[in-house]
Simulated scan of single mutants.
Amino acid sequence: MASRLRERDAMSFVIRGLSPEPFQPLFALDDAALAARNIRCVVADADRGFPCRVTLQDARQGETLLLLPFLHHDVSGPYRASGPIYVREVALSGGVAEFRDELPPSFPRRLLSLRAYDADGLMRDADVVEGIDAIPHLQRLLDLPGVAYLHVHNARPGCYACRVDPA
């Protein structure tokens, strides 16, 4: 009974991938036009290691992706941040990935950096956790006073993975 109470009282959350719309015109560009925008077209050489920020799934070997700079924390202040992301070409045909109170399939096998921000985009707390154990940590951070949302990064390479909002 105590575990049910804990589950019922836990902060509910939603994880969403990026919208595919801003990336659609990029796949029509040639290598020179992509390079002028600091973008590279790559082909996944393994089934792991190419995490798409739209589908929140790893690309499969042989899939085409773009590797591009992305402003993932567009705030005024010291925590404004950008970094490299992958977007799979097949992601353009679907909608925005959404996971409610669960992790995307690729997260449990990664080391994750969780960063909690307030409504002004200032970091309030952070943690590094094994992906398999991430859910209670996401809920704990979202439950802190003043926390408006979280960012998840793949801790080893440090790249942005997604945003987490209270549901």
Rank of each mutant, 00 (worst) to 15 (best):
M1P: 10
A2T: 14
R6Q: 15
R8N: 13
D9V: 11
M11Y: 12
I15Q: 02
R16V: 02
G17L: 01
L18S: 07
P20C: 08
P22R: 06
P22W: 10
Q24E: 11
P25F: 12
L29Q: 12
A33K: 09
A36N: 09
R37Q: 14
N38Q: 14
N38V: 04
R40L: 04
C41G: 13
V42S: 06
V42Y: 10
V42I: 12
A44E: 03
D45W: 13
D45A: 14
R48V: 10
P51M: 04
C52I: 02
V54R: 03
D58V: 00
D58P: 03
A59P: 02
E63H: 09
T64P: 05
F70Q: 04
Y79V: 01
A81F: 08
A81N: 06
G83A: 05
I85M: 05
V87K: 00
R88C: 07
E89G: 05
E89D: 13
L92T: 09
S93I: 04
V96C: 10
E102H: 15
P105T: 08
F107V: 02
F107P: 00
R109H: 15
D118L: 05
D120K: 13
D120G: 12
D125Q: 11
V129Y: 12
D133G: 09
P136I: 01
H137C: 05
R140F: 11
R140V: 05
R140A: 09
L141F: 05
L142N: 04
D143K: 06
L144Q: 15
A148G: 03
L150F: 08
H151Y: 09
H153L: 09
Y160N: 02
R163L: 07
P166A: 14
